[in-house]
Design a binder for these strands. Sequence first.
DNA 1: TCTAAAATCACCCGAAAGGATGACGACATC
DNA 2: GATGTCGTCATCCTTTCGGGTGATTTTAGA
Lengths: 156, 156
Amino acid sequence: MRRHVLIFGLVGGVLVASLQYTEYRFVVIEHSVELYGALIAILFAAFGIWLGLRITRRRETIRETVVVKEVLVPAVPPTPEPFSPNTARQQTLGITARELEILTLVARGLSNREIAAQIFVSENTVKTHCARVFDKLGAARRTQAVQRGKELGLLP
Amino acid sequence: MRRHVLIFGLVGGVLVASLQYTEYRFVVIEHSVELYGALIAILFAAFGIWLGLRITRRRETIRETVVVKEVLVPAVPPTPEPFSPNTARQQTLGITARELEILTLVARGLSNREIAAQIFVSENTVKTHCARVFDKLGAARRTQAVQRGKELGLLP
DNA sequence: TCTAAAATCACCCGAAAGGATGACGACATC
DNA sequence: GATGTCGTCATCCTTTCGGGTGATTTTAGA
């Protein structure tokens, strides 16, 4: 995580350097300092948002694994079907929270690339999670994994 | 996380300091646009981070003790849910019976080859049916097609 | 503080899937 | 007979998936 700050520093440095460079070539002529500032502002605001999302993402997915609720299933389940995930089964299969998260995104029909973009990781990482969860589910394809996941009550 | 903000602040400070330093050493020309830009950059990066934290700061991490408890559910047959396929929707989408048949097999997690073997046609034919039904469902992948099919009531 | 698990990322390779297009025969309908 | 739909099959090409391996970083828990 420290790495992000480092990256930030580097990017900032490079940006400032390049800005200095281009400054002396184009921008300064038109004295559009406001535009220049706005550009930097937008750029860094976006970068900051990204960084904020990235460093907090892991915080929210922290260990919410074992919150086994002692829920009594009503005799006549209401129609909305809240879907309580079968955490016990997930435990016995050794499927991590992250893996299940990827699996749900797979079930929504997303490609590895789309999943990667959505949770801010590389496509390779998504593939790794997929491979692991496929192995744990005994599935050879993502469609099969989704089917198994629904059978086992891991997915709604 | 506080630590990271701290580090971030430090890096930012160093950046500004070095900028100032170099500013006063070499580029003492009247315009300090770089410093201005750097300041804006840092300011808005911080703002972005704050924003990112804010928009994702919903639930605190909850940690509870593990109490895996088997609850005896009042025996209620899950109500097999006869599942009447939404034929009307199928009609409006122009999905043929054969295509829906292939789609259900896709939903079961079978590969094109397995489907071909099961319904005694060539793999190419399966691919053609798949392509057609994907097009009609507006899906790019089979997982997406399955998801759409369930949403539309075409699949159980 | 040390250790094990989890998460991250990369690279390679082969297989599977998907897109585009064309073709052919069966069958129904006009 | 002409037309249209459906099912069948093919080829070429590109993209995506999946398996395997190895590595580093982060986190949790003892």
